[in-house]
């Protein structure tokens, strides 16, 4: 019984760490800022929650604190990524040419028009070669 809990916890730890690894890889290799937001935040949220679940299997007496950290990450991580994506879209960061649909530009066309803020001026110079 005890070794089964250990094995399950270790397996969850390895799965979570693998998701973190793939998230880091996607963050480095995706062609676009919006794709990087997807790759970076979704996979790291799942990976960290899996690591927390593995820790709860290894030490069942820490379960409440681990559940609290997991719930906090589950609520705040999508929120911060969405706020960052909206800030980038308002700043006029370039999309990759393969982008087919941009619903936010259809709803708020003025956010593309004012592309002269500080973050776009720094990104237009060197943003094309990545």
């Amino acid at each position: 019984m005890e070794s089964a809990m250990d094995f399950m916890g270790g397996f969850l730890l390895l799965a979570g760490a693998s998701f973190l690894l793939f998230g880091g890889l996607g963050l480095l290799r995706m062609p676009d800022l919006y794709n990087r937001i997807q790759a970076g935040t979704k996979t790291t949220t799942l990976g960290t929650i899996l690591v927390l679940a593995g820790a709860a299997f290894l030490h069942p007496e820490w379960g409440l604190k681990l559940l609290l950290i997991g719930l906090f990450l589950l609520f705040t991580n999508p929120l911060s990524s969405q706020v960052l994506a909206r800030a980038a879209h308002r700043g006029g960061i370039e999309k990759t040419p393969e982008t087919m649909v941009d619903k936010l530009a259809e709803d708020f066309p003025e956010s593309i028009a004012k592309s002269t803020t500080s973050i776009s001026s720094s990104s237009n110079k060197i943003g094309d070669k990545s």
Partner: peptide, 21 residues
Amino acid sequence: KGPSTVDRVIAFDVLTVISIT
């Protein structure tokens, strides 16, 4: 490396989540 500021902020967010791990 990140070309724009938002790239760096996203990378910082991911770094803090990995640090929690």
